[in-house]
């Protein structure tokens, strides 16, 4: 299970402020904290208030890489910003994200291939998120076909079926689970799957419990990675335990600790 730490995002107040003031310290602190907590990738997102996203995302990548060797997940809707940041990555990164729109695919897939980067493909279009697993899977298939056409290895394609908040879109979660199961059958080797985990619990008073329950259920049907709050210890413990139950990691008494030491 690949954990993508979500915390270096301008939506959070401390990061938003740091980005506006060009202060690398808060970014670097969160990079170190998330690495210690078990993150495999660090998501970086300028947030909505950055004046110049192209300049900012690149600066954020450089600042974070001063204190960690973890690969980065470039999270931005401004594709020029992603294109500017990719060359400064020390290790192959991840592009977050590409909707199932041919225009976006044609822009981003060649970049991913060129920089050996992975890319998150969203099972949605500009029209929004479909409800059924069938429609989500159809978008997934289109992204897989494009990966094949562009020569992007299937293991570098992370398909996100899009989790929606369970308090307002309860009927979606079960469709998401079914989509994950079907995505893993689309090709050999199978594409990878990912999900923005914290979405599922938005605006409920039980966020950690809902998040980790969803995470372990999704792992059982083939979830390979998630963008999540890696500082949530019980979440990471639940994921480590899920890997044992699925026989992905070999049990030992210190398994929770070992799971965090992977990188």
């Amino acid at each position: 299970m690949i954990l993508i730490g979500e915390r270096i995002n301008g939506m959070f107040k401390d990061i938003g402020k740091a980005v506006q003031e060009w202060d690398p310290k808060p970014l670097q602190e969160w990079a170190k904290k998330q690495e210690a907590a078990g993150a495999h990738y660090l998501d970086i997102n300028t947030g909505p208030n950055a004046e110049d996203q192209v300049k900012t995302l690149k600066w954020m990548a450089e600042a974070v890489q001063e204190v960690t060797n973890l690969p980065l997940c470039l999270d931005c809707t401004n594709f020029d910003a992603i294109e500017a940041a990719l060359p400064v990555l020390k290790r192959p990164g991840m592009i977050n994200s590409c909707k199932c729109e041919q225009e976006e695919i044609d822009r981003l897939f060649p970049l991913a291939v060129n920089y050996n980067a992975a890319i998150i493909g969203l099972c949605m279009t500009n029209k929004g998120v479909p409800k059924s697993a069938e429609d989500r899977t159809a978008f997934a298939m289109e992204l897989v076909a494009n990966a094949d056409a562009y020569g992007l290895p299937f293991e570098d394609l992370y398909l996100d079926p899009i989790a929606l908040p369970v308090n307002v879109a309860q009927e979606h979660a079960v469709e998401v689970l079914e989509t994950i199961r079907q995505i893993k059958l689309l090709s050999n080797p199978a594409p990878r799957t990912t999900v923005g985990l914290s979405n599922v619990s938005q605006k409920t008073p039980h966020r950690p419990l809902i998040n980790r329950t969803f995470a372990t259920m999704a792992m059982a049907v083939g979830l390979d990675s998630a963008i999540l709050d890696v500082m949530d210890d019980m979440m990471v413990d639940a994921i480590a335990t899920g890997r044992l139950i699925l026989n992905k990691d070999i049990y030992c008494d210190s398994y929770q600790k070992v799971f965090r030491q992977h990188s």
Binding site: I250, Y251, C252, D253, S254, K257, V258
Partner: peptide, 9 residues
């Protein structure tokens, strides 16, 4: 194998 891993830790 489980104790092998634990002993290494």
């Amino acid at each position: 194998i489980n104790i092998c891993k634990q002993l290494n830790i």
